[in-house]
Each structure stands twice: as C-alpha cells, then as structure tokens.
C-alpha cells in the first residue's frame, strides 16, 4: 500500500572535496523491499547512503526520487517521502522520548499546524511499533544503547515516510539488540510495505534480513540482486578479499558466508617456522 515510491541513482559520483568516493554508480532500489548495502570499510557504502538522503550533492549524475532529481525538489517534500537514521545523531540533554519522537513530524508541520491529530497519531503509532511506549516520559540520554536505537527508529517512523534509510543501525549494539532492530525493520517492511535501505557491516545478517543486496568495492557496485543469487564465493572474495565457503543458513536457508582462515598469513608463519 505504502510504497510505490522509486529511488534510484543515475551515473552518480559522490565525494568529499576532490576525493571521489562513489564513482559513476547506477542502480535502483526495489520499492517495498529491504535492500542492504554491504562492503569493506571505506568502500563508499555510507557515502552512497548520504547521497541518497541528500546530505551530499553528487559531483555528477542525479539521485532520482519518483523520477525527478532529489536536489530539484523542496527539502520538506523530500523529507515526507524519505527518512534517514544517520550514524550518531545527537541527544539533546534532558529531552524525553516522546518529545524526541515528536520531532520526526517536522516535515509535516507548518507555522500554524504544529500538533495536528495526524501528528499525534503518527507519534503514538511509532511508539507502539517500536515498543517504546513505556519509555515515553524518560529522558533519552538515560536510556541503554538498545532502547535508544529503538527510540531513534521511532523518530524516523513518526516521520511517516514510505522509504527508510538507515546507516549501520546495529553498530554498538550487542547481538540480542542487533537482532531486535533488524527484526523490527523486517516487521515494518512486511506489515507496512515500507522500502528499507540500510548499510550493514555483517554480511550474514544482511543476507538473512534483506531481499536485495548491493555489494560495493572501491566506490563501485560489484554485484546487486537477491542474496541467493549474488552471495557467491567469488563476490565475497572480490568485495572483502577473503576466501570463504557459502552454505545455507541452518535456520533460514539464506546463504551464509563462512570465512576460511587467512591463508596468506599462515604461509608467512609456515616460512618463519622453517627459518628458525
């Protein structure tokens, strides 16, 4: 129901200053599905996400939202369709959960309309979906990491956008909270048909929770498609530079990458041993 909004990049290059990080990229993000962008550190995956969210202006090419350049559209209009949870947002001291989540309504508000019934309902819905109801009067800076991440997701949900972008939403969380966050995103996608695009570090979690994978290396896309198709020994080798075996995840049946020991280092150790 919610998401027939299309996001894509057309020959996009992105960078900081004169250093290009993402080079001439072309891809689309399937509406209504979960897409994970994976790759080694510095491959440009977060940069790509920043470009999608309009935080970076492409040095060439265009980011297209519903067929039009995202930079040619009004900020608030874009913010009604595209939400972003960046890495390390700031928690103002003493701000309560409910106040924080309410701020996600910014693009829908105006000088006269600052707390409409729709605003209130969206905030309630976001608190309910993320199970942060009970925390509503607590100051955000007093919450644990896992609770805090759910609150941030609630803020982006209150924004009520058909497309959600998340930059490494599981970093700094323990495994239980990682699964909780990813499970929540899956739920949102399935129940509300929201398009979810996230940058993930963990390849196996990406394969388990996403419908579509984009594997990047040195600012370019190595492979894109469903995990079953693109998660191969060769792609893993190319993207992460490691040798691995791909097996079926014993729980979900999705592909799972089991790295082999680093043979190069082993060789070096072997030679050193012989020299001694």
């Amino acid at each position: 129901m919610m998401s027939e909004h299309a996001l894509g990049v057309d020959h996009v290059s992105l960078g900081y200053g004169r250093v290009p990080v993402v080079k001439d990229l072309q891809t689309t993000f399937p509406p209504g599905l979960i897409t994970s962008i994976v790759g080694a550190n510095g491959c440009g995956k977060s940069t790509l996400l920043r470009g999608l969210a309009r935080l970076l202006t492409p040095t060439s090419g265009t980011v297209l939202l519903d067929g039009k350049s995202i930079h040619a559209q009004r900020s608030k209009e874009v913010a009604k369709r595209l939400g972003l949870l960046p890495q390390g947002p700031t928690v103002p001291e003493g701000l309560t959960v409910e106040e924080l989540v309410s701020r996600g309504r910014y693009p829908h508000q105006s000088f006269r309309r600052q707390w409409s019934i729709t605003d209130e309902q969206a905030v309630e819905e976001a608190l309910r979906l993320t199970r942060t109801h009970d925390l509503r009067d607590r100051p955000v800076d007093e919450l644990s990491g896992g609770q805090r991440q759910r609150v941030w997701i609630a803020l982006v949900l209150a924004q009520d956008t058909p497309i959600l972008l998340l930059d490494e939403p599981t970093t700094f969380l323990d495994i239980a909270h990682q699964l909780e966050v990813l499970g929540l995103l899956r739920e949102l996608n399935e129940q509300q048909n929201r398009t979810v695009i996230l940058v993930l570090h963990d390849l196996n979690q990406a394969a388990r929770y996403s419908h579509h994978l984009i594997a990047m290396r040195e600012g370019q896309i190595v492979a894109a498609g469903p995990p079953q198709e693109i998660m191969t020994v060769d792609v893993v080798q190319e993207v992460f530079g490691i040798q691995s075996v791909i097996i079926a995840d014993p729980v979900t049946g999705t592909p799972m990458c089991v790295p082999k020991p680093n043979t190069e280092n082993k060789l070096v150790t072997e030679i050193r041993k012989q020299q001694v």
Binding site: A53, L84, P92, G104, Y106
Partner: peptide, 11 residues
C-alpha cells in the same frame, strides 16, 4: 538539535 544530518534529513 538532533544533529546536522538528521536535521537535514527532516527537511
């Protein structure tokens, strides 16, 4: 107050 990135993303 929520940060430059989130602020910009919210429009």
């Amino acid at each position: 107050q929520l940060g430059d990135d989130l602020g910009a993303a919210l429009g």
